[in-house]
Design a protein around this nucleic acid. Structure first.
Lengths: 231, 231
DNA sequence: CCGCGAGTTTGATCAAGAGCAACGTTGCCC
DNA sequence: GGGCAACGTTGCTCTTGATCAAACTCGCGG
């Protein structure tokens, strides 16, 4: 395996304030791996034997029902820790992580987690902070799902992706990873048909532009209003 | 304030393995308080200045939308820690906690949190375990909400309450705290009308019995089948 | 360049469940 | 013990969004 560069980690919150030697030490214990779009990083119910840091790309975190339907619980962006079930004393992963785009992740065996936490005070703190944000996000999604009509939920889901991964494009902000209508349906508990109709409508109204697997929001403000005005 | 008895804590996971003196120390720093049914323990968005342990009773954890709708995210049973947002580096509570029945809770100022965690190894571990279970529960609810029809969701919600607080009653298992149709509607993202109809139907079919604010499940197995068979 | 498959669009139909309205019950408070 | 408020039931209507069906478009590999 090629030597990894220290600058990969030095800017990230969990490792903030560590010196080069410490980061070197951490990196030397990491495995780096590339995942194709659609590849599975870990699977619900499997032994949680490693924890991860996403360096590049985007992941979907998915839960499936016994009936075979799947729900996208949240997305992971570069720089975030994930698969940190072990920090919560779980011994299996509670969900499946799938690469939404080509991605690169570092991983460590779980036993190192407590070593890191002991040795570098900020590490545990940051992990738990991430977790806190994530639980808040899931609860937020839950309340939306329980109270809002489909159009609001879809608008909110699109905005969430834009906020998390948006990058400037010609005449708008573009979601940085491939998304199908089916994906959005899986985030919002609806069908790809309904999502398609909604997007078509918004496109006609000049709020978004979309091609195959790609969405650009051209009028974020109107979409925010649609999502419930709470801006 | 009357002196609290050590036996209150000695059997609970977060304090397992501590000797009397340690438990005494912890108890002496706790405030004990009684909450009437319907009383608010802490409120969404307020400063998270204390964390809690429920000694007796049941709580609902609620999130509200800007539009005024509310969703019951989960319930807390006796012996559980709650309001542990501070452990996740949050400085406000992410939800509101309301007594579902008359309840008694201990609480400590957040600054003691890290003291406890440092001094008693099991304490932090158990908290994070609780948190892990809770995030799993919320995700579970989310996937149900996204994929299941109303009847299944309501059946699942009733079963969850029974599992968490069920006590034997004449000819069935009874939910140990008061629940209105509206409450169940708030757990499942539906209306009290629909819940009422469903319960009436189940009662006719001999699966449940219910009076005002009280539900007894007389045929759990059939209800489980209804909820999606995943038993 | 053709054919195929994944992703998307659009129309038509239909059922679940929300909304509305009215009435019935229970228990509590004065 | 009467009245009131909170909780529950039930019928009817109407909307939302799922389901079914079919065709279209793009991009890719052979």
């Amino acid at each position: 395996m090629p030597k990894l560069d220290e600058s990969l980690l030095s800017g990230l919150p969990p490792f903030a304030g560590l010196d080069r030697a410490e980061i070197r030490e951490i990196l030397d214990q990491a495995a780096s791996r590339r995942f194709e779009e659609g590849a599975t990083v870990f699977r619900e119910g499997h032994d949680a034997d490693r924890f991860f840091l996403l360096l590049d790309g985007y992941l979907r975190v998915v839960r499936s029902t016994p009936g075979g339907d799947q729900v996208i619980v949240l997305h992971i962006s570069p720089g975030q820790l994930f698969g940190i079930a072990p920090a919560l004393q779980r011994d299996t992963y509670p969900a499946t992580a799938i690469a939404a785009a080509e991605s690169i992740a570092l991983s460590w065996p779980v036993r190192l987690w407590s070593d890191f936490a002991d040795a570098y005070p900020g590490f545990a703190t940051e992990t738990y902070k991430t977790l806190g944000e994530r639980i808040g996000q899931v609860q937020q999604t839950l309340t939306e799902m329980a109270t809002q009509a489909v159009e609001k939920r879809v608008a909110a889901a699109v905005l969430r992706m834009v906020n998390q991964s948006g990058r400037k494009a010609d005449g708008g902000i573009e979601i940085a990873f491939p998304v199908t209508r089916q994906n959005i349906a899986d985030m919002t508990g609806t069908t790809l048909h309904t999502v398609s109709r909604l997007l078509s409508g918004w496109e006609k109204a000049g709020m978004v532009e979309s091609t195959r697997k790609h969405i650009t929001v051209t009028d974020p403000h109107r979409l925010v209003v649609l999502a419930g005005g709470a801006d």
